[in-house]
Design a protein around this nucleic acid. Structure first.
Lengths: 161, 161
DNA sequence: GATGAAATCCGAGTCAC
DNA sequence: GTGACTCGGATTTCATC
């Protein structure tokens, strides 16, 4: 049962790990520089990097935008409890959640809540609007608990690999 | 008091927004392609993009690595309560937390917990080790509540801008 | 102060080995 | 996996507005 994952991980050589780390640190590094830093020829580097994309190790390369600078400076976590634990309720909730682009994370969890949400908005009034019109308005939602973030200590750290 | 932020946001023209969106969708797009898609000359595109970096709108460009493929397939949220609400306790906790690379998010929140953590590990035993040896071992921690993620619906969505 | 055309130079991507 | 080759793009300069 673990064979597939083991195989995948074994297929990562230390060179490939190096490429992953460097691309995670600077996704816009040129192939030439990447090759130099990883001690391989540009052609080899090019093919290996390409394979890391094709095999799904790298899902995408994204610019990380400063939330403060684009009106997303307020971070909020919300725990959600649904009123029925039916597959239909969960499905309906997830479908609705995917349509709200301000929701950055949505995870089904075990514990006191059914779902955990991570949300970025510009300010409190905007969150209140979202909360009142979108979140608690969903038919399946029984209650929510809101945790306003007062200080971001670590946000979205890169994977340590 | 809001003048600086207002000024910053006003300084984002619709062309610059377009650049931000496209670089967030594909951080490795070439300057030539970016210029074409944003309807500007390569030279202009180059200078504007450079300024988006210099002015801090783009904090970095990162490859997004598939957590499953590198042994970080288990996602866990942890609420933490400290035993004293002194500045020293908070500071000590934050210093310690920054040294644990498996912690992807750490935020000081208002509500039932003091801190919320988002953690990625390979499997349950690894989390138990982290929890026992690192988290509850910290002097200031009174209690933790763990939420295992059973299904990731949305993880780390790009900012909608 | 910003723009685009042109000019240079270097790297991406390919091929033969 | 390497080395070399070609073409196109990155980056600078400059004239212009």
């Amino acid at each position: 049962m673990d064979l597939k994952q083991t195989a995948k991980e074994l297929s990562l050589t230390s060179s490939e790990l190096k490429l992953l780390r460097k691309l995670q640190a600077d996704g816009r590094i040129s192939n030439a520089d990447l090759a130099r830093e990883a001690n391989m020829s540009p052609a080899t580097c090019f093919r290996r990097t390409q394979r890391l994309f094709e095999d799904g190790f790298i899902k995408s390369v994204r610019a990380e935008i400063d939330p403060e600078k684009v009106g997303r400076g307020s971070l909020i976590f919300v725990g959600v409890v649904l009123d029925r634990s039916t597959p239909e309720s969960f499905e309906a909730f997830e479908v609705a959640v995917r349509k709200i682009p301000l929701i950055l994370d949505c995870h089904l969890v075990a514990g006191d809540f059914d779902y955990f949400l991570k949300i970025r908005v510009d300010n409190m009034p905007e969150f209140n609007k979202l909360h009142a019109n979108k979140l608690i308005a969903l038919p399946a939602v029984r209650q929510t608990r809101t945790f306003f973030v007062m200080k971001e200590v670590i946000d979205n750290a890169p994977l340590s690999i």
